[in-house]
Nucleic acid binder design. Structure first.
Length: 561
DNA sequence: AGTTTCGGCGCC
DNA sequence: AAAGGGCGCCGAAACT
């Protein structure tokens, strides 16, 4: 059965196509077709399309109503394979891969496109270098061989397949958009911020709060200017190093309350206010342009509109179409469950094998029932907390869950020493990411005072850069393996929704929203739970670890949880 | 005048 | 209480 075909769009709107054998090599002649979408639509038996770039091809297919079951994105795979091979930073275009294969000069990658408010999702990538199908097939065949050389070839194949699936999901979500009520949004803004004044200045409520802050200081103070606020506190006899919330909140001064309120509302105004609405919401949909695998850990990003940072109060504007519902579902305690799965710590797997509150179970075993302490300890272990109660809590965690803590400790040590660190499926951490990279001379620090070389002759010493790399690597294995799992979840959920009216419209690390007719909602909830467990088995193999979801069927996003 | 960095805070 | 991982976004400040 010929289930894999390769495809390369042509300049004239047509395409070159070729069937592939199970070995990934061409199994027939290259075919020329006059219409890209028609060529795909006419081959419904194809289970996987191999192409250079999903972002190049798939939006054009979706625009004509053509969906595909699976794909393989050659340039995304190239990125993942280069990373796995410890070759971060090498150009990752298909053209570059071909040049490396043939020993020619390697072209640099074209510059990244940046987001423009209101711009339609790109139908084309103008700067991208297209390759003839024959060249593409050469790169693909070589990538198949490179998978075989990976630390875990079968996991690496799963990773590239999963991220390609993620790119299909991203393209489909970009097309669907998140249902957004501009009326509700404007109502929320008015409730929070008051009237807008002509001229685009601060709305009424912000102006009032600025007046209150100024009155409390006894002089005119601009609360949106940190330097001004620091100076005002200094004149009041209070030294502050910054105007961050956590530093300001504990101060005893009448300006504190209106200042904090101002900062909260100011944030809404500038980041999700009227101009945001104008820029990003069209025809009842917010389209943030999701990018699968946009970060080194594999988490997604959105390009424009702050799609993954929608403030809780603004979520009231996310409203289902009439007769439709939003199924809002987020994974329960994803990080510790993933840590259990990757570390295979027996105690933590046992705890993560229950659907009930994992932090409560951890606290019953290691923290005398103090759930807050247990949660801090787990998150501290994952994020690399280095001081405060975190260390004491970490010790308690280590006694009860030694393999789990050892797993992240090993990752941290590998990061500090500059060794490669990988997620469960094989996504690889760039050697020096998160290190800050500031040249010591420019920062005014004598060279050698805090350098990596010092670690070699001072026992127990690690430079701040090395420690930062350690924290990054520690977090990377958990956050990144969670992203691995999330890709498989999305792929499975997407398959479950195929043939239904239900559409995935939002994804945020461990949370999904499906927009569907009311009568499909319960089936979607079940599909999410099944997809989560399937993703757990596919990603991590057979473990006792469960991946429960909290799901709500709502008309408005804000009504979930 | 245009571009880059910084400070702060939103989300996970 | 103290301040640790990943991002994007905005205006202001700091540059060229």
């Amino acid at each position: 059965m010929t289930d894999r075909w390769a495809l390369a769009p042509a300049e004239d709107g047509g395409a070159e196509l070729a069937p592939l054998g199970p070995d990934g090599l061409p199994a027939g002649p290259v075919v020329r077709e006059p219409d890209l979408a028609a060529a795909v639509r006419g081959r419904p038996e194809v289970a996987r399309w191999v192409w250079r770039s999903t972002a190049e091809v798939y939006p054009r297919l979706l625009a004509t109503g053509v969906r595909v079951e699976r794909c393989y994105d050659i340039e995304d795979a190239e990125t993942l394979l280069l990373g796995h091979e410890g070759r971060y930073g090498e150009p990752r275009s298909a053209a570059a891969a071909l040049a490396r294969l043939r020993g020619g000069p390697v072209p640099p990658d074209p510059p990244q496109r940046s987001a423009e408010p209101g711009a339609q999702s790109s139908l084309f990538e103008p700067q991208a270098v297209r390759l003839p199908l024959a060249d593409l097939l050469e790169v693909y065949a070589e990538q198949q061989r490179r998978h075989d050389k990976a630390a875990h070839p079968e996991r690496m194949r799963l990773l590239t397949a999963a991220e390609s699936a993620g790119m299909l999901v991203a393209a489909e979500m970009n097309r669907a958009g998140l249902p957004w009520s501009a009326d509700v949004h404007r109502r929320v803004l008015h409730e929070l911020l008051g009237e807008r004044y002509a001229g685009g200045g601060e709305p009424r409520r912000l102006a009032e709060l600025a007046d209150e802050v100024s009155a409390a200081f006894g002089r005119r103070v601009r609360p949106d200017l940190p330097a001004d606020v620091v100076k005002a506190f200094a004149q009041a006899g209070i030294k502050v190093r910054s105007t961050r919330r956590w530093e300001i909140a504990s101060l005893d001064h009448p300006a504190v309350a209106p200042l904090l309120e101002y900062k909260k509302l100011y944030r809404i105004w500038v980041a999700h206010g009227w101009s945001w609405l104008q820029d990003w919401v069209r025809e009842g949909r917010f389209r943030p342009e999701f990018l699968a695998g946009g970060t080194v850990t594999g988490r997604w990003v959105t390009n424009g509109g702050g799609g993954l940072q929608i403030p809780k109060v603004i979520r009231r504007a996310v409203v289902a179409d009439p007769g439709w519902r939003l199924v809002v579902a987020d994974a329960d305690q994803m990080e510790p469950r993933v840590l259990a799965a990757i570390s295979r710590d027996p105690g933590l797997m046992e705890v993560a094998g229950r659907e009930s509150d994992l932090y409560q179970a951890v606290s019953d075993r290691a923290f005398s029932g103090d759930r807050a302490q247990a949660k801090l300890a787990v998150l501290g272990a994952v994020y690399g907390q280095t001081s405060g109660d975190g260390l004491k809590n970490l010790a308690a965690l280590r006694r009860r869950f030694p393999l789990a803590v050892a797993y992240v400790d090993d990752a941290a040590r590998a990061g500090e020493e500059g060794r490669l660190v990988r997620t469960w499926l094989g996504r690889t951490c760039p050697p020096a990411a998160g290190a800050g990279e500031e040249p010591a001379e420019e920062a005014g620090i004598p060279v050698g005072a805090d350098s990596d070389e010092a670690a070699q002759w001072m026992p127990g010493y690690a430079s701040t850069d090395a420690r930062a790399r350690g924290r990054f690597a520690r977090n990377f294995v958990v956050q990144g393996s969670a992203a691995d799992w999330a890709l498989l979840l999305l792929a499975a959920l997407r398959q479950a929704c195929a043939g239904k009216a239900a559409e995935l419209v939002f994804f945020q690390h461990d949370e999904v929203i499906v927009h569907c007719p009311e009568e499909e909602a319960e089936a979607v909830v079940a599909a999410i739970r099944e997809a989560a467990e399937l993703a757990g088995r596919l990603t991590f193999g057979e473990t006792p670890v469960r991946f429960p979801f909290t799901a709500a069927v709502v008309e408005c996003y804000a009504d979930a949880k």
